[in-house]
Computed example of a mutant assay.
Amino acid sequence: MSGKIHPLFGLWYDNKIQFAMVNQQLLTMKQPELGKVIQQHRLSMGMTQEELVERCNISVRTIQRIESGEVTPRSYTIKIIQSVLGIPLDPPLVDRSLDSIPDDFSAKDRQVFFWSAIIGLAYFILSSYEVFWELTLMADDRQQIPPYYTLLKVLVLVSYAGFAYGFYRIGQRIQNSALMFGAAALIVINAIIIGSDLYYDPSAAESQWMGIYGVVVFGISLIPFSIGLILSLKSMGEPYRIVGIVGLVTGFLFISLLLAFIGLFTWAVFDIACIYLLFRQSQGRRGN
C-alpha cells in the first residue's frame, strides 16, 4: 500500500481538524463571540432570522439580541439553536450565573431592577414614616402637621413609582400583561390617594374619611398586582407566587378595615419581599 495520502482524504481530514478546533473554541466562548458564530452558521445555511425563529419557536427579538451579543442565551435555547443549525454547542459554555434569566432580560434590564430595588428601599423607609404620621394625626386632631408633610408625600409617591416600574419592566419582558397593568394601577392609584391627602386638611373630619377610603382603595389596587405576580410563576419561579399570595392577603385585610392593622404588618412583609425579588433579578437569578 502506498504511503501517500489521497488528496480527497487529506482535504476531508484537514476540514475535520479545523472543525474540531472551532468546536473546542466554542466550549469557552462568551458573548459577543458566541452570537457571531451563531450568525455565521445561520448565514452559511442561507437561513434568515425569521426562518430560524420559526424553526426554534423563539422570538425574533431574542435571536437579534443573541446574535448582537446583548444577552447570553439559556442552555435550553442553546440546545434548540444547536439542533436547527447543527452547531455542537455545549451548554457549559454558557455563563451559569445567567442560565435562569429569560433571554429578553438584558444587562440594562438588570440595572433597572437593581435601581428599582434601591428606590424600593427608600420607599419602604419613607412610607413607614408616612404611616406613623398618618396614625398620629388620626389619633390626635390637635397634633400639628409637620412642615415637611407635603415633601414627604411627594417623595413617597415618586419612590413608589420607581419601585413599581421595576415590576412593570419585568411584566413587559416576560409578556405578562397582568403584572404590567397591576404595577401601572398601583402608581396611578397611589397618585390619586396622595393627591387627596394633600388636598384635604389632615386635621379635618373629611380627611379621616378620606384616610379610610384610601386604605380600602389601596387594598383593592394590590389585588391585580398580586395576581400578576402569581401569574409570573411559570416564567419567574415559585417565590413570585408566594409573594403574590402575601399581596392578596394584604389587599383583603385592608379592604376589610377591621383587620387593616394586621394588614400593616403583612404589607411590610410584602414590600420587603418585592424588594428582595428585584435584587435577585438584578443579579441574574429567578426567585427559585
Rank of each mutant, 00 (worst) to 15 (best):
I220F: 13
H41S: 10
G69V: 03
Y240W: 15
V216E: 08
V215F: 08
S100F: 10
I66G: 05
T77D: 06
H6R: 15
Q144W: 08
M236K: 04
L121Q: 08
Q31T: 08
A184Y: 06
Y149G: 04
M1E: 11
K4F: 15
I223L: 13
I242E: 03
I5Y: 13
K30V: 04
G211R: 14
Q175G: 00
A107T: 07
G237A: 01
M180P: 01
D95W: 06
K153A: 07
I125C: 13
W12D: 10
C274E: 14
I38E: 11
F113S: 03
F105G: 01
G263P: 01
V156S: 05
A161Q: 05
N57M: 07
L52I: 05
Q64Y: 13
P88W: 08
V216A: 11
L257Y: 05
R96C: 03
V22K: 14
F113V: 04
D14G: 07
T250S: 06
I145L: 13
K79L: 14
L26R: 08
N15M: 14
F9Y: 15
G211Y: 05
A184T: 13
V216F: 13
V246D: 02
K30P: 04
A191L: 09
G46F: 05
S232A: 10
Y148F: 12
I220P: 00
M210Q: 12
Q144G: 02
T150S: 14
S127C: 09
F261V: 10
M138V: 05
S128F: 11
Q40W: 14
P202N: 02
V269I: 15
I223F: 02
R74K: 09
G247C: 01
A273K: 11
G3H: 12
Q208L: 13
I119R: 05
Y165Q: 06
V84L: 04
V156T: 10
Y276D: 10
A191E: 02
A204G: 07
E70S: 08
P224C: 01
A122K: 08
G195F: 04
W115M: 12
G263V: 00
S2C: 02
G195P: 08
P146N: 07
P102W: 02
S256G: 03
R110N: 03
L135G: 03
Y149I: 04
T150V: 12
E67G: 03
P91H: 04
E134A: 08
D109I: 07
